[in-house]
């Protein structure tokens, strides 16, 4: 579903040029969930933003669903992958009602009027249909994140890119959102890339985890290795130790 080869991202120019992602390659199969774990500034979010098409400084090759995508995405290419952001308070326009938030993707893409699909999509993420009338500030953080997930699914992408989707939420709300994401994955056979600093969230959601440090992957762990805490690199070992005191 996703093939990335030799992806590099640099910011700035001349003396100040800094390579944030250093030639990483990975493959994610259809229906698989890949986790990327690392500390702040390791480049994990940059990888995700390059996959989504938000960062245009990348070099290398990205193939989504078999098609190589450009730095400047066409509408067809944008439909392949959508993103859920970390902060549910900042990712929804504060002056748009929920119905507009959910109708916008279809309207912006000029496919249908969008309004008619608001109610079913709210229901799909477990929110009552009358939420369409509300403004974001009338919703709790967890409810907003549900709306953000519903919005990302409006264009029916096959890939969902999740940037720390629960780190701003309370534990119990986090559990609800993670369950919702698992259900949706099953229902729609979605492919996820989940970026997080929280190893326990990653371990719960993912089939495979890449450990990132200073712009490169240093370790790869599968489900079994995660359960038993087997690591192949001192950094991931340290990360494991710190995560489970």
């Amino acid at each position: 579903m996703i093939e990335v080869s030799n992806l590099s991202v640099s910011f700035g120019s001349g003396e100040a040029r800094r390579q944030v992602v250093k030639g990483v390659s990975f493959v994610v199969g259809k229906g698989e969930t890949l986790g990327i774990v690392g500390e702040s500034g390791c480049g994990k979010s940059t990888v995700l933003r390059s996959l989504a098409g938000l960062d245009r400084h990348w070099e290398g090759e990205i193939r989504l669903a078999g098609n190589a995508v450009d730095r400047e995405r066409s509408r067809e290419q944008l439909k392949l992958a959508q993103m859920v952001f970390q902060d549910p308070y900042g990712s929804i326009h504060p002056r748009h009602r929920i119905e507009r938030v959910l109708a916008e993707p279809a309207r912006a893409m000029k496919i249908g009027d969008g309004w008619s699909r608001v109610a079913p999509s709210l229901e799909q993420v477990g929110l009552p249909a009358n939420f369409a009338e509300r403004f974001p500030h009338e919703l709790s953080g967890g409810q907003r994140q549900r709306v953000a997930i519903a919005r990302a699914l409006m264009l029916e992408p096959e890939i969902l890119l999740l940037d720390e989707p629960t780190s701003a939420l309370d534990v119990s709300v986090q559990a609800e959102v993670l369950n919702l994401l698992s259900d949706l994955r099953e229902e729609r056979n979605l492919t996820y890339v989940l970026v997080s600093h929280d190893l326990s969230v990653i371990a719960h959601m993912c089939d495979r985890v890449l450990v990132m440090k200073d712009g490169a992957f240093v370790d790869e762990l599968d489900k079994g290795a995660l359960e038993q805490g087997q690591t192949h690199h001192p950094y991931s070992k340290q990360l494991f130790k710190a995560s489970f005191l």
Partner: peptide, 8 residues
Amino acid sequence: AMPDPRNP
């Protein structure tokens, strides 16, 4: 509610 990798 907390995910625990040792107890999936």
